[in-house]
């Protein structure tokens, strides 16, 4: 989201403002998302990266309003073309889901209903949001399967999900999501459950479909490497908060948050043979008891006293790059001082 696009278009396609989501469990309130904000313009790809439990999927469920019974959006706004969709009633939301924003999920093995054929599930998605007749629906279903590169589409339509491979099912999921030409596709870890070769195929397919259909994509993943060359902007999340945002290049080559640095260090690289992989020590923070300062501090190698007591504020590194880390602040102060001294 560069400033140019903001100035060209007054209202971005999707604006998420200060979104908070909690789950009310027996053990207490689990704060899964703690105020995240982002904008998404039409036709752009936004990557949301974070480890399990960082709130990336929950933030997506919140804007689709498909949280489980115990989950609730406690604060914030989601503006789609300037309209707050969190204010929609259930009927409005039904016609909104699947037609304006679609979603595909992590595990294609469990995401298709086992007792209905692929064709009937695909046709259902088309029928809900359009008023095509039987033949047109069938034709559209076939067309969609061809579009996502399923071989023998006529035969597949009659098959049941368990008769397809994982990659094939994910293609069916994508076909289902795109059947009504949504403006935004949310992909929640679309490749995590797939083989590496299939992962590449699915990503390639999504990229080409994005170019062909011109929709915006929100790509949720825990694997930075997977989405690096797809995304216009990347958000790194930790404990339900944004730690860093920027373009793919900025995140990769100039990470400012210690967590992002750790994430990048933990990506295996074939080219640098002798470098040891550095994992991030410790385990994710307990969302039931969020600590006072920076949530990442206890796992951070460069944690400072201030990190334990005060939450880091978002600081702009440059126009498109923002980080919320005290180490970044220190680094920038040092640069400032050095710059001042040299002058």
């Amino acid at each position: 989201m560069s400033t140019e696009s903001n100035s060209q278009k007054n209202v971005p396609l999707l604006q998420v403002k200060n979104l908070h989501t909690s789950f009310y469990t027996d053990a207490g309130e689990v704060k899964a998302v703690n105020g995240i904000s982002y904008n998404l313009d039409a036709g752009k790809v936004l990557g949301i990266v974070g480890e399990s439990g960082s709130g990336k999927s929950v933030s997506a469920y919140s804007l689709m309003q498909i949280l489980t019974d115990t989950g609730r959006v406690t604060e914030g706004e989601v503006l789609f073309k300037g309209e707050n969709i969190l204010k929609y009633n259930s009927k409005q939301m039904q016609s909104f889901r699947g037609s304006r924003i679609s979603m595909i999920f992590q595990d294609p093995m469990t995401c298709l209903n086992p007792v209905f054929s692929v064709g009937s599930q695909l046709r259902e998605a088309i029928r809900i949001h359009t008023d095509r007749n039987r033949e047109e629906t069938q034709a559209r279903a076939l067309e969609m399967l061809q579009l996502v590169g399923v071989n023998e589409p006529e035969k597949r339509l009659k098959q049941y999900p368990h008769e397809l491979s994982g990659g094939m099912r994910q293609r069916v999921m994508i076909a289902m999501a795109l059947a009504c030409e949504p403006d935004i596709l949310i992909a929640d870890e679309p490749t995590t459950a797939l083989d590496v070769t299939i992962q590449a195929q699915i990503l390639e397919l999504m990229q080409s479909l994005q170019k062909k259909l011109g929709m915006a994509i929100i790509m949720i993943t825990h694997d930075l490497g997977v989405i690096a060359d797809m995304c216009d902007e990347i958000i790194v999340m930790y404990a339900g908060k944004v730690c860093e945002r920027g373009t793919a290049d900025e995140i990769f080559y100039n990470p400012r948050h210690e967590y992002t640095k750790g994430l990048i260090r933990s990506i295996p690289r074939i080219t640098e043979q002798h470098e040891k992989l550095v994992p991030i020590a410790g385990s994710p923070v307990d969302l039931l008891n969020l600590p006072k300062g920076c949530a990442f501090a206890s796992r951070c190698d460069h944690a400072m006293k201030i990190c334990l007591t005060q939450q880091p504020e978002e600081v702009q590194v440059n126009d498109s790059h923002i980080a919320a880390c005290w180490n970044n602040v220190r680094q920038m102060m040092e640069e400032e001082n050095r710059g001042g001294a040299s002058k």
Partner: peptide
């Protein structure tokens, strides 16, 4: 609680149909 129910909801299937079509048959 299954994933395919979430899929059906994300598709925009009516709550009634989610229950009586997608859930009840299973």
């Amino acid at each position: 609680g299954q994933d395919y129910i979430r899929t059906a909801r994300a598709k925009g299937v009516k709550q009634v149909l989610v229950i009586f079509k997608h859930a009840l048959k299973n």
